[in-house]
């Protein structure tokens, strides 16, 4: 029996745009995943702590405020220092193409921007977890 994929969807910083992340939460729920939503205005520390306590397969960070180059280095540093470097991190939202390249270089596995079809989000997460294997 396959287990539901566990996902933490997080909003970090002052970004108050959560319509998109709620649509994604609903989409993943309807695809049979366990979705934990952080709520708005969380710090990278809070998000990483929650992701580790919840032992999620995927940490998805939604950003529409342009702070990706500040937030992701912090998140990866915290994950590594807390012994959770096997966490799959994905990003969503709106950001410039050059930032997409940059955060992928930092370790973000996929960046699913605002025009990504819901099915593709589901397929991407499913593929990433399958590639990782059992843990």
């Amino acid at each position: 029996m396959t287990q539901p994929i566990r996902v933490l969807l997080a909003k970090v910083g002052l970004d108050g745009h959560d319509r998109g992340v709620k649509v994604v939460a609903r989409t993943l729920r309807d695809a049979g995943m366990d979705v934990i939503y952080s709520g708005l205005h969380r710090t990278p520390e809070e998000v990483v702590t929650a992701a580790i306590q919840e032992d999620v397969d995927v940490l998805g960070v939604s950003l529409l405020s342009g702070v990706q180059l500040t937030v992701f280095p912090k998140i990866f540093q915290l994950l590594a220092s807390k012994g959770a470097d096997d966490m799959i991190v994905v990003a969503g939202g709106v950001m410039p193409d050059e930032d997409v390249v940059e955060i992928k270089r930092m370790g973000v596995r996929e960046v699913l921007l605002q025009d990504t079809p819901p099915d593709e989000i589901v397929q991407t997460l499913t593929r990433l977890v399958a590639e990782r294997g059992e843990r």
């Binding site: 995943m33 366990d34 934990i36 939503y37 952080s38 809070e46 702590t49 919840e54």
Partner: peptide, 22 residues
């Protein structure tokens, strides 16, 4: 609760406890 249809779930209790996270 998990959805009886998809088996998925939105786990929202944590949001009410965000003051405790740190």
């Amino acid at each position: 609760p998990s959805s009886p249809y998809s088996g998925g779930a939105i786990l929202g209790d944590r949001i009410r406890m965000s003051d405790l996270v740190n």
